[in-house]
Write a protein that binds this DNA or RNA. Structure first.
Lengths: 230, 230
DNA sequence: ATTATCTATAGATCTATAGATAATGC
DNA sequence: ATTATCTATAGATCTATAGATAATGC
């Protein structure tokens, strides 16, 4: 089994010619698996169905992956990682270099935008029952770490009234849940800029920010990514 | 196939004696299916596994249900119906007999409490990919109707700043998503009264209510159920 | 006679391995 | 020689039907 991801190498030609030779076979398989896992779930997706969508024989999948589990693990990890990286980066700059509300706004906007654009709405994968298995402990740990950052930034940004009635853990769970409203909206139809902004603004309002502070944080946010790149 | 739900009638005895004769065989099957669907998903749950959990033979399931689909359909419907009934009831009394914020508080509290107590955390079923199939159009319509009420009550309760930046549809999606934070919390561990209150309060804060209004609505709420029963 | 179960099983999958083959690279 | 595919298939399911059977009810 090949586990790396170099471009396609020579080998016996496919029975059906490669539809997209620009993508590595591995990525073609991941893309097909993502689409089918999101639509039908993991168990309802057969390795045959994945192979058919790629345009290869069922057995050929096993040259690239040990099985569906491994495909799912990779899809989960590559989708949570960038978000966690940004979260940690922001977390480290708060509150000295960046106000908490600004950092939270930046994280929320980034995650909402990413989730609204991922191919096949892969955020749906987080909801699948398979993900509860210990096979995916690593993913769940990353996700929990992300939630913790949400809770920490939220608690720092929060008004005293809010802080009095809600813990950082609760706030983390609530904020991440709110961000994932995008996933459900995408299931129902197109997600527009207004939807994304409504969700981002709601995340800040949940922390007790007033209307002026909400728009302020969403504005100030636009400077942060530049700082991060530096 | 028997589709009603009378108490058990005579018939060949089970190989393994009935563990809970107080429940009809149908309810025993639904309970087992719910537990397994929540834990592993529908496709990953075999009819054999359901039967084993009940304590009957696999083939005996088909005397009560046409298949897993029918079990899932019944579980979904019986879990959304009571909530939709309450929502419609409240919706009809707003704003003349009951203030919108009070009605929203009552609906949120009821749904949060219900979801936090359902056996096996059945709210998880809403998230399964199978539910997107047209086989479950009826359930999804009920759920959309519930979401619409959330949006309507939320918009009526909302402060002008909130109404200016968010539509009733967006608010409905956000509120129902927030309520379902309970489902995720239950996956992670016990859900306490503080968690339920944090979520309920957050739903009201999302509508732009201040701290005083939030606690006010959650208080006034307690009178509403009595009015509903009348 | 009616009911709710049982046993047995056909037919349809589905996964994962073994081994062959058709390319390119050296 | 190496690589990426292919063909073929064993073994393990899983679903849903046919028909038998062991109770109670009349």
């Amino acid at each position: 089994m090949r586990t790396d991801d170099r471009p396609a190498r020579p080998g016996r030609p496919r029975a059906v010619p490669d539809a997209d030779p620009a993508l590595s076979p591995r990525d073609q398989i991941l893309d097909a698996a993502a689409a089918l896992f999101v639509e039908h779930g993991v168990s309802a997706t057969s390795t045959r169905a994945i192979a058919e969508r790629v345009g290869i024989r069922q057995a050929s999948l096993y040259y690239h992956f040990a099985g569906k589990d491994e495909m799912l693990a990779e899809l989960l990890t590559t989708s949570v990682r960038p978000s966690l990286d940004l979260a940690r980066d922001l977390d480290a700059r708060v509150p000295d270099a960046v106000p908490a509300a600004t950092a939270l706004a930046a994280l929320v906007r980034s995650d909402v935008d990413t989730l609204s654009r991922t191919p096949h709405n892969v955020g749906v994968l987080y909801l699948l029952p398979e993900v509860q298995g210990e096979r995916y402990d690593g993913f769940r740990a990353d996700r929990q770490a992300l939630q913790d950052v949400y809770g920490r930034l939220g608690a720092l940004a929060a008004s005293p009234e809010v802080t009095a009635s809600i813990t950082a853990d609760q706030l983390g769970a609530i904020l991440i849940q709110l961000v994932e409203t995008v996933i459900q909206l995408r299931r129902a139809g197109e997600v527009g800029a207004a939807d994304r902004e409504a969700i981002a603004a709601t995340c800040l309002r949940v922390c007790g920010l007033g209307a002026a502070e909400v728009t302020g944080a969403l504005r100030g946010m636009s400077e942060v990514p530049a700082a991060v790149e530096a």
